[in-house]
C-alpha cells in the first residue's frame, strides 16, 4: 500500500505546530512528574529498582545456566552445538576426551569436563537454549550480574550447574515419546 503524503500547510512548513505540540506533551509529563509526583516506575512497579525488586515475567531471557535432570545428573552431553552457535563466542566447552570422565547419567556418552560462559560476552540471545538437543541449558531469570573482575564473570561448570538448579519439569525424551504417540492418531493434536 502506498500512503499518500498530504502536502504540508504553511504553518506546518514552519514547524510551528510541531513545536507547540511538542511543548504541550513535554510540559504535561514534566508537570505530572514534578508537581504530582507520578513516575513511570512508581505507577507500574510501585517504586524504584534497588528498593523495590523488579518482577521478572515468565519468558524473560536472563543469564544462561546449565540445568540438571530430575535425578540430579548433568544433562549436557558436551555436543558443543551451543559453543558453535553462540554469536559472541561466550561459551567455551572442554570436552572430556577419549579417556575422560564418563557421563553421570544413563543413555549419555559423555559430559563436558568444563563448561565456561563468559557473562561479559553473552548477549542473552537465547540461541544456546534453542539449539541444545538435550535441553540442558536455559536462559533463566538473573538479570543483574556483577563482579569485581573479568575473571569473576567467567562462570565455570560447577557454578553454572549450581545456579541453574534442577529442571524436573523438562523431560525431553518423555515429550518426544508423547509427540510420537500423538502423531499416530489422526488428526494430529499438537500440545
Amino acid at each position: 500500500m502506498i500512503v499518500s503524503r498530504k502536502p504540508l500547510s504553511l504553518a506546518e512548513r514552519f514547524y510551528l505546530p510541531a513545536v507547540a505540540n511538542g511543548f504541550k506533551v513535554t510540559w504535561r509529563h514534566f508537570r505530572r512528574t514534578v508537581f504530582e509526583g507520578k513516575t513511570a516506575a512508581g505507577e507500574t512497579a510501585g517504586g524504584f529498582h534497588p528498593e523495590v525488586p523488579w518482577k521478572v515475567e515468565p519468558g524473560y531471557r536472563g543469564a544462561p545456566y546449565l540445568v540438571r535432570d530430575q535425578e540430579g545428573h548433568t544433562k549436557c552431553v558436551s555436543c558443543q552445538l551451543c559453543e558453535f552457535i553462540c554469536p559472541p563466542k561466550a561459551i567455551r566447552i572442554t570436552p572430556p576426551g577419549p579417556d575422560g570422565q564418563a557421563a553421570d547419567r544413563k543413555n549419555a556418552e559423555k559430559m563436558p569436563r568444563d563448561f565456561e560462559i563468559n557473562m561479559l560476552r553473552c548477549i542473552f540471545c537465547g540461541l544456546c537454549q534453542e539449539v541444545c538437543p538435550e535441553e540442558a541449558i536455559f536462559l533463566q531469570k538473573d538479570y543483574s550480574l556483577s563482579g569485581g573482575s573479568r575473571e569473576e564473570m567467567i562462570y565455570n561448570k560447577e557454578r553454572l550447574l549450581a545456579l541453574g538448579g534442577t529442571h524436573s519439569g523438562t523431560q525431553k525424551w518423555k515429550h518426544k515419546l508423547e509427540e510420537a504417540k500423538a502423531q499416530e492418531a489422526f488428526p494430529v493434536k499438537t500440545p
Binding site: 513535554t26 509529563h29 514534566f30 505530572r32 512528574t33 514534578v34 507520578k38 513516575t39 513511570a40 516506575a41 505507577e43 524504584f48
Partner: peptide, 10 residues
C-alpha cells in the same frame, strides 16, 4: 533532571 521529568523518571 529535566530529561528525567519529561520522561516520567526522577
Amino acid at each position: 533532571k529535566v530529561s528525567a521529568f519529561i520522561q516520567d523518571r526522577v
